[in-house]
């Protein structure tokens, strides 16, 4: 039994097949990378796993339990939490209140939620901004808030959608550190990322899709040498293969 298993996921939007017959298995404790060119269906796949969309066909199993078509808010209680590619801070609330709101998914007591939020913010390195309005944060910190908020729901599986997009090299460096730290806590991570440096360094395994179809899966080394991946996504210039 895999930790998370997607079986033959398909999603049509009208006549467009955004995701077609994609199957993947994610093991507990790994960082699972998802790559592909723009419009390949990575975010749609995320939306299917996190139940934002209901698949046209196929199933999603989480720890052996069929979670296909379950209500979005229930996914979170099961231990799956996602971040958004376009960050969605609760703008007119402070950073602390954002995280507290997320922490309430694990407790009903305000004091407990506050402790949980403070602990998570310290873990993610956002404590110094706790009283700032979320809408006023720069992009790097908004992305961090997105992760912090997701972590405050105490997920077992974290779905990160382009967390490093738009970050400068220093910020990406911090993001990598944070993601590794989260993994060391025992959280399984699925990550979508365009930044090859990040995804190749941190992923244990990578799954590549193009036009909604799976084209390759394996270690970063294997995937980056796969001719189909090079043709569809990486390009000839990406010369990291030793073969």
């Amino acid at each position: 039994m895999s930790f998370l298993e997607a079986k033959h996921l398909t999603k049509h939007f009208g006549g467009l097949t955004a995701v077609g017959n994609v199957s993947l298995k994610v093991e507990q404790g790994e960082i699972f990378g998802l790559i592909g060119p723009n419009g390949a269906g990575k975010t749609t796949l995320f939306n299917l796993i996190s139940s934002f969309h209901i698949p046209t066909s196929g199933q999603v199993f989480f720890k052996g339990r069929n979670i296909t078509g379950i209500k979005t808010h229930k996914i979170c209680k099961l231990g799956i939490c996602r971040t958004f590619q376009v960050v969605r801070p609760l703008r007119r609330m402070t950073v602390l209140d954002n995280v507290i709101a997320a922490a309430f998914s694990r407790t009903n007591s305000k004091a407990r939620a506050y402790d949980l939020a403070m602990e998570t913010m310290e873990f993610c390195g956002l404590l110094h901004r706790k009283d700032a309005l979320a809408g006023g944060l720069p992009i790097g910190e908004r992305k961090r808030l997105e992760i912090t908020r997701a972590m405050a729901t105490r997920p077992e599986l974290l779905l990160l959608d382009e967390t490093a997009a738009g970050l400068n090299p220093t910020e990406s460096e911090l993001a990598i550190k944070l993601i590794k730290k989260i993994r060391d806590r025992g959280v399984t991570i699925i990550i979508v990322e365009h930044n090859m440096k990040i995804i190749m360094t941190i992923s244990d395994r990578i799954h590549a899709i193009s036009f909604g179809q799976s084209i390759a899966e394996g270690t970063p080394q294997e995937v980056s040498c796969n001719p189909a991946v090079i043709e569809a996504y990486l390009g000839e210039e990406y010369d990291q293969c030793l073969t």
Binding site: S50, F52, K71, T72, H73, K74, I75, C76, K77, C81, R82, F84, R88, P89, L90, R91, R92, M93, D97, I100, A101, A102, F104, S105, N108, K110, A113, R149, A150, T153
Partner: peptide, 22 residues
């Protein structure tokens, strides 16, 4: 908790949903 959830829904319904808010 109710108050925090009300405010979260005001700010962003989809984000609220992803945080486990019904």
């Amino acid at each position: 908790k109710w108050g925090y959830y009300f405010l979260s829904i005001r700010e962003d319904q989809d984000a609220a949903e992803s945080l486990g808010i019904n």
